[in-house]
């Protein structure tokens, strides 16, 4: 196991939240809101931890060699390492739910949805550049040899894993929908944006839940 970086609000408190972040482009668009939620939780007496997924952000590992299993292992190892008592999974982060801790998943999404938008971005960009790439041919290539989508080099194993992955039905995590939070979904925003009210709402749900226990 190689060490990974994590952004932490850590003062040794009893209530300890592991955040499983959104993936790829959505990770960028939701990073600020995610950290803003952690900052609010810190003020509510909760430690929180946002690890880099292997192959992403500051990770020294190559993304191409990751698999869904290696990411799930990383999530479990992070939960143990930080002695997490709760989990907040964001979007596709729900696919890494270890199933052993209580908590929440915010607008969970399946792997198919993750790939659909990234593949479509590539076909649109290709069309603009006068090249023809089809969804079917990109999917085939992804499964066979891996593929670069929106700047991320996905290996064939991770691509095939993600295509099949859906958030588990049987989970100790409670769902938080965008309607619960209010406002427009920030992962859809063409330019990364922030919304303090959304961070307030998400942090309030988590803080009330954790402090009630």
């Amino acid at each position: 196991m190689v060490d990974e970086c994590a952004l932490t609000f850590e003062t040794g408190r009893d209530k300890r939240l592991l955040v499983l972040p959104a993936w790829f482009d959505e990770a960028n668009k939701l990073r600020r809101t995610t950290v803003e939620v952690m900052h609010r939780l810190d003020l509510s007496g909760i430690d929180s931890f946002l690890p880099d997924l292997p192959g992403c952000n500051e990770s020294l590992q190559p993304l191409e060699t990751q698999t869904l299993a290696s990411w799930r292992t990383a999530a479990k190892v992070a939960a143990d390492h930080f002695q997490a008592t709760h989990i907040l999974a964001v979007r596709a982060g729900a696919l890494l739910d270890p199933g052993t801790l209580p908590g929440w998943r915010y607008a969970p999404s399946g792997g198919r949805q993750v790939l659909r938008a990234m593949i479509r971005a590539r076909t649109i960009a290709a069309k603009e550049a006068g090249r023809e790439e089809t969804t079917a041919s990109l999917q085939e290539r992804g499964r066979a040899e891996g593929i670069e989508l929106a700047g991320w080099n996905l290996g064939s194993a991770l691509f095939a894993d993600i295509e099949q992955a859906a958030p588990p039905n049987d989970t100790p995590l409670a769902d938080i929908t965008q309607a619960d939070i209010g406002g427009g979904a920030l992962w859809l925003r063409a330019e990364p944006d922030e919304d303090p009210e959304q961070a307030d709402a998400l942090a309030a749900i988590v803080a009330i839940g954790m402090n009630a226990q």
């Binding site: 659909r116 990234m118 479509r120 076909t123 649109i124 960009a125 089809t134 859809l188 330019e191």
Partner: peptide, 27 residues
């Protein structure tokens, strides 16, 4: 700001909210 990634997100959200399927050739 409406680049290919944003358009992809837009079309994908249209599929989900309008319950339609958008093919490559439609775009």
């Amino acid at each position: 700001e409406l680049d290919s990634m944003a358009v992809a997100g837009l079309l994908t959200e249209m599929e989900d909210r309008l319950d339609i399927i958008i093919e490559d050739d439609d775009v």
